[in-house]
Every structure is written in C-alpha cells, then in structure tokens.
C-alpha cells in the first residue's frame, strides 16, 4: 500500500513538474560567445563581460524521493494540519475552510493518498464521552472533505478524546489548543 502510494504521488508530482516546464515561456536565448577575429585582434581593446548563465535544473528524482514535499513545505497550506474549535463546538470555522479545501484538492488529485483525522477535546469531563466529542469533530472534517470530492476510502476519522493534549495547561488558552482536529497523511502515523 505504502509503495503504491509513493509511486502514485511521484507520478503525480512529475506530471505536475513537466506541465509547469511546458507552460512556462522559455528564457530568452543568450548570445553565444564569438571570437573577435577582426584586424587588430590580439591587442587588448575594451574589456568585455564574461557571462555564464545559470542552468535551470529540472530534477525528476527529487519528487520520487519526497513525494509529499508539498505536504511539508511550510509555505504550502497543505502543511497546515490543525483545525481548532470553540468550546463545545464541532463545526469547522470559516478561517479553516481554505485549509480543508486545499486538502480536499490534494486528495482529489492524488487518489492514492490517504489520511487519518484525529479529533481531540479539552480535558474537562468524562474521558469516554470526550472520545465521542472528538469523533464528532473528526467526522465533521471528513464530511466536508467528502463534499469537496475526496473519497470515503481515502479518509479515516478517529478520536483521541482528551488523551493527547497539545498544551498541558488548565486554562482556556491551553484548552483552546486542545480542541482540535489533526490531519495526518499515510506514513505520518
């Protein structure tokens, strides 16, 4: 399964890179250096700049080594994996719509990609009921991804309840970090 996923991701990334090359206009051709054979050659005249244009490198192997680069590129929204919630709330706030849409797009474009969504709660109340509440959060993200075109087989939504807090504090600041859903891609869990 893992090998298939990597191959799929690699193929998808290659295709993306090739597409990028073909649509980007080629850089202007630099004039080739020509030897001056005119009379008086050999005498130093006006000095000429020595030019060597850098080579634009296309590396098809990098993507194979690291198919999920986009998922970890800090400048890519796909590297954002956490959705935070208000107290006793389970709906994805507007500020996280872009994040969920980006992951939905990635899942659509990479049918072999799979994710685990872990729902979490703050520490207050019953551990088992909190497993239920965390599940309600992760189910909500899953439902949104499905509406945006991801496939059921790509997504597992689970709950960690209150067991894996991001912050150990006992105040609203800590609790607000713990009420969250985390998205993990296959290979990350």
């Amino acid at each position: 399964m893992r090998a298939t996923l990597i191959a799929t991701l690699a193929a998808a990334s290659c295709a993306a890179l090739l597409a990028a090359c073909s649509t980007t206009p080629p850089p202007e051709q630099a004039p080739a250096g020509v030897e001056d054979r005119s009379p008086g050659a050999g005498k130093p005249g006006a000095s000429q700049p020595v030019e060597q244009k850098p080579i634009a490198s296309v590396d098809l192997t990098a993507s194979r080594q690291d198919p999920g680069a986009a998922l970890r590129d800090p400048s890519n929204i796909l590297s954002k994996r956490s959705i935070y919630y208000d107290y006793d709330k389970f709906d994805v706030r507007d500020e996280y719509r872009g994040l969920v849409e980006a992951h939905a797009k990635y899942l659509r474009e990479n049918p072999g990609a799979k994710i685990l969504i872990q729902g979490n709660t703050d520490e207050r109340g019953s551990r088992e009921y909190n497993v239920g509440l965390g599940q309600r959060r992760s189910d909500g993200v899953k439902r949104m991804l499905l509406l945006l075109g991801a496939k059921e087989s790509q997504i597992e939504s689970v709950s960690l309840g209150e067991e894996k807090p991001q912050s150990e504090g006992r105040d609203e600041e800590a609790w607000s970090k713990n009420r969250r859903s985390d998205i993990l891609y296959s290979g990350e869990y």
């Binding site: 872990q118 993990l184 869990y189």
Partner: peptide
C-alpha cells in the same frame, strides 16, 4: 481496555 498504541482507540 482501550489502547491508543495504533494512533486511534
């Protein structure tokens, strides 16, 4: 019991 050793309950 419930164990989270597989990243889920």
């Amino acid at each position: 019991y419930v164990s989270f050793e597989n990243k889920k309950p």
